[in-house]
């Protein structure tokens, strides 16, 4: 096997998953999901590995990985904060919440805090418009968030 600059154990785990798929045609997105679950993101070498395993061009893997907003090629923080930027949240001031989170975490460039604890992202409508504005931390939904509550929410994850 060619040498890949990533964690060997994790790569083995991914290989087992790919080997277990019967219908390899059309499986790419599912494989990328699994890879991101294992590695936390999609490093270049993992994409290369997937391309060779599935017998498709690396360009196709890269093309798909960059097309969908779910996939990321940057390492992510331990906790992922998502601020909903759907219309209902937007008209209720989601941008101010996002600003406050970034201020609180001292994030100026990019979207990860320096200690690697948090990644801040936005997403398009979680469908909880009745609770706008909405913030999600690791899948837990916080509704009707006020700027003054941001610190308290982040503190829950800081221990």
């Amino acid at each position: 096997m060619a040498k890949y600059d990533v964690d060997e154990v994790k790569l083995r785990q991914l290989e087992e998953y790919i080997d277990s798929i019967e219908q390899k045609e059309g499986a790419l997105i599912g494989v990328l999901y699994k890879a991101q679950e294992i590695f936390g993101y999609l490093p270049k070498d993992v994409q290369l590995f997937i391309a060779r395993k599935l017998g498709i061009f690396a360009a196709k893997v890269y093309g798909v990985a960059t097309f969908y907003s779910y996939f990321t090629m940057e390492p992510r923080g331990k906790h992922v904060i998502n601020v909903c930027m759907g219309t209902a949240c937007f008209v209720k001031g989601a941008d101010k919440i996002l600003e406050e989170i970034k201020k609180e975490l001292d994030i100026k460039d990019g979207n990860m805090s320096k200690d690697g604890l948090f990644t801040v992202d936005t997403l398009r409508c979680v469908g909880a418009c009745g609770l706008a504005p909405v913030v999600m931390v690791d899948g837990k939904v916080y509704g009707r968030v006020k700027v003054e509550e941001v610190k308290g929410i982040l503190d829950e994850y800081r221990e």
């Binding site: 059309g26 790419l28 997105i29 093309g63 798909v64 907003s69 779910y70 996939f71």
Partner: peptide, 23 residues
């Protein structure tokens, strides 16, 4: 399961996505 692309609501894009490609 989709991977976060609004365009996949368009039917031909959705089909491309199910086939594992760019939507």
């Amino acid at each position: 399961i989709g991977a976060g692309a609004f365009i996949c609501g368009e039917e031909t894009a959705l089909i491309n996505s199910i086939e594992g490609g760019r939507g």
